[in-house]
Simulated assay, not measured.
Amino acid sequence: MTPINPGSVVFENVRKNFGAFTAIPDLSLTIEPGTLVTLLGPSGCGKTTTLRMLAGLEHPSAGRILIGGKDVTMLPANERDVSMVFQSYALFPHMTALDNVAYGLESSGLKRGQARERAEEGLKLVGLGGMGPRLPAELSGGQQQRVAVARALVLEPQVLLLDEPLSNLDARLRRRVRTEIRDLQQRLGFTAVYVTHDQDEALAVSDQIIVMKDGEIAQKGAPSDLYDHPASAFIADFMGEANVVSCDIVGIEDGEAMINIEGLLHRVAGRNIRKGPAQLAIRPNAITLSPMNGGAFGGQVIHTAYLGDHVEYEVKTSKGTLFVVDPFMESAFKPLTDVEIGFKDRGIAIIGS
């Protein structure tokens, strides 16, 4: 049950107004066939509006939307070759899992026997073979979510849309189901557009992440690229916590910058860098702490929290309070301890120079 033709998605200068309010000022993006792309951002950033325009549930105020090269800008939802998995699952409570999956096929004109046969294949595909006779109330949250995914996939859409699909699941189940969704997408090769506000979710499932802010693309790229090379303080903090501090770039060689923080020198990879004042994003687990021994950059521990497999610190420094995650629990520093600060090679990025 492989989608016949995984489609590309193109937004060309799309604008969306709600009365006097402009939710999406000017959006242009391309999603390649067979990829899973996540629209990520805080509440109100425009990601859900973008997905709804792609689904045909909203129409742009200007610009064009193409699916598989076809202009679908003003087509209604039922005339677009897309399927959507909703946040609420939207299963019919009085129908069995099998009937829920078969419903869209029967509505599209497929004979009942053929529809039920394909629905059974869809349930097997998502690991629910044999559970067709169960009602939604007899299924767990994760199983209901998989029924919703199967219902969408059996229609063999060019593009599968997923709107916060894991938000109703607990943390452990979210991890399992997101892995299942990613495995399905890679195995079947369909195009997927996935909306979430959860950074870990986006990092785990995506070929590409598009981070949105105020209806615009703040940065897009592979998960590792956004995490390791954030373009701004907003991206650095949104893609996992980051300490943003000022520094000076005192040297540049072979695409690396020598940065100076209070006399502490450290090499950092950079793009379009130049000497002078700069901003640095430092991941909490990229900071090392050691007993104060005359080092150039020091601080004082003001809070210590033991979290089982690591210790979290707040360290007061001349550059502000740093949040630090340290796996070495055996030698945890107590509050009011003076410490020397160092950096690891990975987890530090220049975000402005």
Results as ranks from 00 to 15, higher is better:
Arg151Gly: 11
Glu121Val: 05
Leu160Trp: 01
Asp163Pro: 00
Pro157Arg: 07
Met131Lys: 15
Val126His: 13
Gly129Thr: 08
Val159Leu: 14
Pro136Leu: 05
Leu125Phe: 01
Val149Asn: 05
Leu153Trp: 03
Glu121Gln: 15
Gln144Tyr: 09
Gly132Cys: 02
Gln143Gly: 03
Ala150Val: 01
Pro165Cys: 09
Ala148Phe: 01
Ser140Asp: 05
Leu153Val: 02
Leu162Asn: 04
Pro133Phe: 04
Val154Phe: 12
Leu128Lys: 11
Gln145Trp: 07
Lys124Asp: 15
Ala150Leu: 08
Glu121Ile: 07
Glu164Leu: 08
Glu156Trp: 02
Leu135Cys: 01
Asp163Met: 09
Val149Thr: 09
Gln158Gly: 15
Glu164Cys: 07
Gln158Cys: 02
Glu164His: 00
Leu153Lys: 04
Lys124Cys: 10
Gln158Thr: 01
Leu123Ile: 01
Leu160His: 01
Gly130Asn: 10
Met131Ile: 06
Val154Cys: 03
Ser140Ile: 12
Ala152Lys: 08
Leu125Asn: 07
Gln158Pro: 06
Glu164Asp: 04
Leu125Glu: 11
Arg151Phe: 11
Leu160Asp: 03
Ala148Tyr: 05
Val149Cys: 08
Leu135Gly: 02
Pro165Phe: 06
Glu164Lys: 02
Gln144Val: 02
Arg151Gln: 09
Val154Met: 06
Ala137Met: 08
Pro157Gln: 03
Ala148Met: 12
Glu138Ala: 15
Leu128Ser: 10
Gln145Asp: 07
Gln158Arg: 15
Leu155Val: 06
Pro165Thr: 11
Arg134Met: 11
Val154Arg: 01
Leu160Arg: 06
Gly142His: 04
Gly141Arg: 13
Leu153His: 00
Glu138Trp: 05
Arg146Ala: 07
Leu135Arg: 15
Glu138Leu: 09
Leu155Tyr: 00
Glu121Pro: 06
Lys124Asn: 14
Glu138Gln: 15
Gly129Leu: 09
Leu162His: 01
Pro136Ile: 03
Leu139Val: 03
Ala152Trp: 08
Gly142Arg: 10
Val149Ser: 00
Glu121Ala: 15
Val149Ile: 15
Ser140Val: 12
Pro157Val: 12
Glu156Met: 10
Leu123Tyr: 00
Val154Pro: 13
Val147Gln: 13
Gly122Leu: 11
Gln144Trp: 03
Leu123Phe: 05
Ala150Phe: 03
Val147His: 10
Glu121Phe: 07
Ala148Arg: 08
Gln158Asp: 14
Val147Asp: 10
Gly132Met: 06
Ala150Trp: 04
Leu128Thr: 10
Leu128Met: 05
Glu138His: 06
Leu161Lys: 09
Leu162Lys: 01
Pro157Leu: 09
Gly132Gln: 03
Gly141Gln: 12
Leu125Gly: 09
Gly130His: 11
Gly127Arg: 09
Gln145Asn: 07
Pro165Lys: 10
Lys124Gln: 15
Lys124Trp: 02
Arg151Lys: 04
Leu125Thr: 14
Arg151Val: 06
Leu160Glu: 02
Gly132Ile: 00
Gly127Leu: 14
Leu135Ser: 13
Leu162Phe: 14
Leu161Gly: 01
Ala148Cys: 11
Gly122Ala: 12
